[in-house]
Design a protein around this nucleic acid. Structure first.
Length: 841
RNA sequence: GCCCAGGUGGUGAAAUUGGUAAACACAAGGGACUUAAAAUCCCUCGACUUUGGUCUUGCGGGUUCAAGUCCCGCCCUGGGCACCA
């Protein structure tokens, strides 16, 4: 056995062995004990850095651990291969996106292998290949058939840099695009949507089923869905231009505070309200209102929604009738009203801070309709709206009722009288999926002469991406430049049609890839139900927190649609979710940033692998800190991991003969003297600690620390040829345990040492060590002795000693007596196996 | 503003869930080996200290024999939502 740890040699060797053995290939039909370990598939951007590595290293560790526990583990890998960077690269360098993407995939595959992250490549999927996007298109057709995919003219988010529209989820709270960073504009365009809002309630309710998901991810999804319960009330619009009150239309408005309705003194609608122009037509105020609409439209969403900006509005000249009071109130258009709910809100300045400031500015009347418990609310003493709970006031038959109770009563009244109803509103909007870019799956639709959408028949899929296109982004899909592509024939009439030229958002591709892995080679169907039902939901999903809303919400939506289509019999895709933190490093500006090319803080794995080997990089990545938290990459830390692996290697090499000889020793615990008994106990304590950590919270950092501690304990047992049989046997047992425990983290060195310890088969086929409960027992326990809560001494106590005898022994100690001088003992607390605290005063 | 996570040595962090605060590492300092260096091995390493101890987990209170951990009130950092009626 070599003296020095030859990481380069053994890593190459074992990677080939795993490949040849098909160690990571899974027979989906025959597997008896399925465990689906999934990592978010990467976008093939070129090269992986050590920050990306965390995801795959954690996933590989889980897969190996579960394998050793006897599961039939499926760990597939694939490529989220459509997307803008490839297209932008094509514009810049002239390399076609397909070639660029395939080259990146080859590089990254090699990198993953070099890390020792092994996958079942027989199940690889690549979303930009026709054998994949054919089924993405097929799924689009399924949604279309059921009315879940539709096209409509709507105000959409336009990214002026990437020259395409974006989904709401792709726009950051500051109004910039998640991908390009450009300030997003609003445009009216006709676009394709998926009707995710139909699933809002289920997406919300089923979050409760996801016990294995981090609470914060569930909270984020909950906020995003944004359910609010309230009442829709129909106010009648009246014209008073000729002095006659002719109610000619209903203006529905949504409120969560119907209890305040008797304090409603005006109504405001959003400037984009679709009927507004109609209502003001011919009014003396028409010009002023149109002007106002124009001004509001000029503001982008960020400025418009900034809460520091002063609210603006104008009177429309029209009035509406509050159906509860029969009273006429003026109708305003105000820029603080959004096209949410119905785009119209009843304004109650006394009980809503926004209405308050608006009413103050435009001198609109304010009327109290909720009184506080003390009855001390007076208009002239208020300097802001009263938004707390209270008692209905000046509210007809509801006066005196607690306002919370009034909400349902008032809703019921509206329903009974036909001027309103209880309603639920969601913040969630439909998912905008069309993109005016080339590198995506074409939307399988054509248009006939009258412009009607005709779905491409399923048997004509895939609609192939053409290659003869001009990439330059013009705001129009590049596909339009391909004459061949644009031509289509109506499936029934044979008439000439024009193809849809937009492509699908790449989040569509990634919303179902975990299902396709299970049928990757199947060219007859998207998903094989029997296999999917056997393997899904995914047992463990691992990925970045940045996908908490986008990808994870869309994937849940798709799974529910599949369920409704009868394709599968489960309706949530991921049982257990783990979101790892990002790896950061000080950038060229001296601040900590997420690793990225633009910040100049990327650590490339290539040099590290050459200098230290993959196992060192893996071990350090796991040791760096709690895996769910962000971590700062420190090059010096890698050195520590390397030192440890070298030491482990040396211990085996130095005692190689002895370790091999000890293989056949059969001993019992009775033969062990104290030092080896201690090591034996430590060995099993470590097994317990690490196994618990891997099953629960993924505490890889403490698992690695635990192995290091065990190694330190191994070094405490001085071993030589002259040592006892028991000592040798325990020593070997401890070393074998170290190798087994470290194998999910540092698999190459573990394989090599396992074989050096005389095992002919791969460590992956060894069983994960089990805790021997008897090994954990102690005859003598060290107890901490406290006086008044301060540690004063320690005492070795027999494990069988009674509380009374321990108490007596403790009180006899000089070190205790010293602190009790002149005091009366009040109480003695004995915590068995832990400590004794003498309380005295 | 609302909701959620956090705040522990020079650094990354641990702490069996209320029971010895700082495990395991990194960095630093000292020593051994060496002609020398690297590597390796050993020791020190929260602060103060009269070497007896005292203090120490963002700050201030509280509960308890005992609080990093529980409760109340603040401060700070990160994340999510935010003119959503």
């Amino acid at each position: 056995m070599k003296e020095d740890y030859p990481f380069g040699e053994i890593e190459a060797k074992w990677q080939s062995v795993w490949d040849q053995d098909g160690a990571f290939e899974t027979n989906l039909e025959q597997a008896k004990n399925p465990y689906y370990c999934l990592m978010m598939f990467p976008y093939p951007s070129g090269k992986l850095h050590v920050g990306h590595g965390r995801n795959y290293i954690i996933g590989d560790a889980v897969a190996r651990y579960k394998k050793m526990q006897g599961f039939d583990v499926l760990t597939p890998m694939g490529w989220d291969a459509f997307g803008l960077p490839a297209e932008n690269a094509a514009i810049k360098t002239g390399t076609p996106p397909a070639a660029y993407t395939r080259a990146n995939i080859a590089t990254m595959k090699q990198q993953l292998r070099a890390w020792g992250c092994m996958y079942d490549w027989k199940k690889e999927v690549t979303s930009c290949e026709p054998d994949y996007y054919r089924w993405t298109q097929w799924l689009f057709l399924q949604l279309h058939e059921r009315g879940l995919a539709y096209k409509k003219e709507a105000p959409v988010n336009w990214d002026p840099v990437d020259q395409t529209v974006l989904a709401n989820e792709q726009v950051l709270p500051d109004g910039t695009a998640e991908r390009s960073g450009a300030k997003v504009e609003t445009r009216m365009l006709s676009q394709w949507f998926f009707k995710i809002t139909d699933y809002a309630q289920r997406l919300l309710d089923d979050l409760d089923k996801l016990e294995g998901w981090p609470e914060r991810v569930k909270t984020m999804q909950k906020n995003w869905i944004g359910r609010s319960e309230g009442t829709e009330i129909y106010f009648s619009l009246v014209s008073r231009s000729d002095g006659v009150k002719d109610a000619f239309e209903n203006v529905p408005c949504f409120t969560t505070r119907v209890d305040t309705i008797y304090g409603c003194t005006y109504m405001s609608v959003a400037p984009e309200h679709p009927q507004l122009k109609e209502w003001i037509s011919g009014m003396p105020q028409e010009e002023a209102v149109l002007e106002f609409i124009k001004d509001s439209a000029a503001l982008n969403d960020i400025d418009r929604q900034s809460d520091t900006r002063e609210k603006k509005g104008v009177f429309t000249g029209r009035f509406v009738i509050n159906p509860y009071t029969g009273e006429e109130v003026p109708l305003w258009v105000a820029d603080y009203v959004l096209m949410y709910g119905t785009g119209a809100v009843m304004a109650v300045p006394a009980h809503d801070t926004r209405d308050w400031s608006f009413a103050k500015k435009y001198d609109l009347p304010i009327r109290i309709s909720i009184q506080n418990r003390e009855g001390t609310l007076f208009l002239d003493e208020m300097d802001d709206a009263y938004t707390e709970d209270g008692i209905c006031y000046d509210s007809a038959e509801f006066t005196g009722m607690p306002n919370r109770d009034a909400i349902s009563r008032m809703s019921k009244k509206a329903e009974a009288a036909g001027f309103g109803k209880a309603t639920v509103n969601f913040r969630l909007r439909d998912w905008l999926i069309s993109r005016q870019r080339y590198w995506g799956a074409p939307i399988p639709i054509m248009y006939n002469e009258s412009g009607q959408a005709v779905p491409v028949p399923a048997d004509q899929l895939p609609v192939l991406l053409p290659e003869d296109v001009e990439f330059k982004p013009t705001g129009e899909s590049p596909l339009r430049s391909s004459e061949e592509f644009m031509k289509a024939i109506h499936p029934e009439s044979g008439a000439h049609c024009v193809r849809e030229s937009d492509t699908m958002d790449t989040f569509v591709d990634s919303s179902w890839y975990f299902l396709r892995y299970l049928s990757a080679q199947d060219d007859r169907q998207a998903v094989d139900a029997a296999i999917a039902n056997k393997w899904m939901p995914v047992d463990q999903y691992i990925g970045g927190i940045e996908h908490a809303i986008l990808h994870l919400l869309y994937a849940r939506f798709f799974t529910k649609v599949f369920y409704d289509l009868g394709l599968i019999d489960f309706d949530e895709p991921f049982k257990q979710l783990f979101t790892q933190g990002m790896i950061c490093k000080k950038g060229s500006d001296g601040n900590l940033h997420k690793m990225s090319k633009s910040k100049g803080n990327v650590v490339s794995p290539d040099e590290l692998l050459k200098k230290y080997g993959a196992d060192t990089v893996r071990l350090y990545t796991l040791f760096i800190g709690p895996p769910e938290k962000e971590a700062e990459w420190q090059d010096a830390g890698v050195e520590g991991a390397s030192r440890f692996l070298k030491r482990l290697w040396r211990r085996v090499a130095d005692n190689h003969t002895l370790l091999l000889e000890a293989a056949d020793l059969k001993i019992t615990m009775d033969e062990m003297e104290t030092p080896e008994r201690d090591l034996y106990r430590k060995t099993h304590e470590t097994i317990q600690q690490i196994t618990r950590g891997l099953d629960g919270a993924f505490t890889f950092n403490t698992a690695v620390a635990g192995i290091m501690e065990l190694m330190n304990a191994v070094d405490q047992l001085k071993i030589s040829e002259d040592s006892s049989r028991a000592a040798k046997a325990v020593y070997r047992d401890a070393m074998e345990t170290v190798v087994l425990l470290i194998s999910p983290f540092a698999p190459h060195i573990a394989e090599e040492l396992w074989s050096e310890l005389g095992h002919p088969k791969s460590v992956l086929q060894a069983r994960w060590p089990e805790v021997n409960k008897r090994a954990l027992e102690r005859d003598v326990i060290e107890m901490v002795i406290q006086v008044n809560g301060k540690t004063r001494d320690k005492l070795q106590v027999s494990a069988s000693a009674s509380t009374e005898s321990i108490e007596a022994d403790v009180l006899a100690l000089d070190s205790v007596q010293k602190w009790l001088e002149g005091k009366t003992i009040r109480k003695v607390i004995v915590v068995p196996g832990r400590l004794v605290n003498v309380a005295a005063s």
